[in-house]
Each structure stands twice: as C-alpha cells, then as structure tokens.
Write a protein that binds this DNA or RNA. Structure first.
Lengths: 158, 158
DNA sequence: CGGCATCCACATAGATACTG
DNA sequence: CAGTATCTATGTGGATGCCG
C-alpha cells in the first residue's frame, strides 16, 4: 500500500533557539544548535518543499490546487470510473449546480487534468475524460480515503 | 510507479445509454433495483465513499477537513518536525498572521489533531504538538508532495 | 444538452490594534 | 509571549435565467 512510508523514525528535532533568547534553556537533547532547520527527508525531499509560505511552485501546493474546491474530489471520482458527459456528471451528483460543475471542469481542464471532447449536433454533447496527469491523482484520492478512515477509527475509540 | 494501480480494468461503465432517453434501456446486469453504480473498490472501498454530495461522514471529506485552509499544510509540516510554540511557528512562517495561525491551531485542536500545552509564567509559553491522530496525516502529506511532483514533471514534458 | 451571465450570501484571509 | 477584536477586501458556492 501507499501507506507504508517511513514516518516513525523521523522525529528529527530541530535544535533549539527557535524561540528567541530562551536563554540556555533549550531542549537538552538538542544541545547542538544550528540556525538552519533540519527537515524530514520524506516530508521535504527537496528545496521546493522548504517554503515559508504557500508557494505555487511547491509540489504540495500543486497537488492541493488539483483537488481544491468543494465537489472537486467527487467530480474526479466520477471521472476515475471512465469518461463522462456533463449530463452524466449532473446525474451522478444531483445537488451540484451546473455553474459549479462547469467551474470545476474548467479548472481541471486548465490544469490539464481533464480533457474535453465536444460532439457537435443536437442535442449537444460534451464528454470529459481524465488525462494521463489526471490519472496521477488516483493514489492521492485513495490516500485521502485511507487517512480519513484512520482518523474516524481514532475518533471512534475515544 | 505507483500509477500501476488497478485502474485499467476498472472502466465499469455506469448504466448504458447515459445519453438520451434511455428509458427502459438500462444496463441488463443492473436491471434490478435503482440506478446502482459500480464503483472501483480502491477508490470506494465501502458505502461511505459512495456519496452523491460532500458528506462530512465520508472519509475523504474528513481527511480534506484536516488539511483544508491556506497555511494548514505548512503548519502541519512544522509540527511534524516536533512540538512548537506559537512564536516558533510564527518565526518559521513569518508572513502568516497571528490571527490565521491562531485559527488554524484552534481548528486542528478541535479535530484533535493537535494538543496544546500552556506553560504559566512570564513570558507566557504555549506549546503545540501533534496527537496520535495528527501523526496519521504524515503519509498524506508525503503523498501530496509525491503527486504534486509527478504533476510538475508531467507539465515539464509539454 | 451544455453551458455562461448575474446576483446574492457567506466564508475566509489579511492588516491593524489592543490585552492578559 | 500569546493571543483576541475589528474591519475590510476578496473569494467561493449556490440560485436563477438566458442562449447556442
């Protein structure tokens, strides 16, 4: 599974003094102070992840942009099951307004995650399908489900 | 890579003739009962994922709620590296206002993803740390990075 | 059928100022 | 230090209606 990650052995203390002149009272175990921050290598594999604010160039932001917006993951889920027309999507998600569906599809198209194919004639027909890039979101959706499920299980215990 | 998922054999057409007046033309195999859809089992492992709108009970929504909001993933990243005080977080994310940081931490606390520990005295000090549930978000953050990176690589090709 | 144009309601981010 | 209180600007979702 995607879950296997390393996660546990990565506590990587940052080493103190981050909080101004806390004097000599920094974390005893982190006596060696380094002004530079030590990042977990899975969490921040390279410099693009070491941002101090939400940068559109950060991979995490790119992925978030892909799934952001209400209904977006549901639209993606539908398209993961195969090409769908505008109307089919509306049937699958009955309480989603045409305007928002339109916005979502336009956004996904702009990010080249979805392709649009218009069939001329009457009635008109437009079919949407995931691109190769769009297919790359599948493991992320699976992980979202897995994580949410884990959180719910945690909460059920309490 | 991870893309290999089952995806391919999962075209699972919904009921046929989604287009026009299918009327009595429903899918033969799904002839019984309502317009039931066949879902991919990785994408929709159980009934909670088969929603027709964003339900707070859907695991995907639960996970999205955990990482939603500007700055949230950055705050989580900081806390993934160890406990941090309010001031340390501000130093790490200098352009994040106190108000929004406060809101994010309160939200994470409400979801029991973060714990708060006040140290009395002067100057005051409050330390935030991930709970066990909060730690469960780590693989998701890693997957967000991985996916975003894949999308960027895709775009670089074009 | 598949949209876009409008209008509206509300949520959210950021800046600034102030307090325990 | 660690927040809260305001105020404002902007974003976003949803409803409705029109049009190719």
């Amino acid at each position: 599974m995607v879950a296997g990650v390393v996660g546990q052995s990565e506590t990587v203390r940052v080493t103190g003094e981050l909080g101004g002149h806390t004097g000599s009272q920094a974390d005893p175990r982190a006596g060696n102070q380094t002004v530079s921050v030590a990042w977990s290598t899975q969490l921040v594999p390279d410099a693009r992840g070491a941002t101090r604010r939400p940068e559109p160039t950060c991979p995490v932001e790119v992925a978030l942009a892909a799934i952001s917006g209400r209904w977006t993951t549901l639209v993606l889920r539908e398209l993961m099951h195969g090409p769908r027309s505008f109307g089919e999507l509306r049937l699958a998600l009955p309480t989603l307004s045409a305007k928002v569906l339109s916005e979502r599809l336009a956004g996904l198209e702009r990010q080249t995650l979805v392709e649009r194919h218009r069939r001329r004639g009457f009635p008109a027909r437009t079919v949407y399908r995931l691109t190769g890039a769009g297919e790359r979101l599948r493991p992320l959706l699976v992980e979202l489900y897995r994580t949410g499920d884990a959180l719910l299980r945690d909460r059920a215990r309490r």
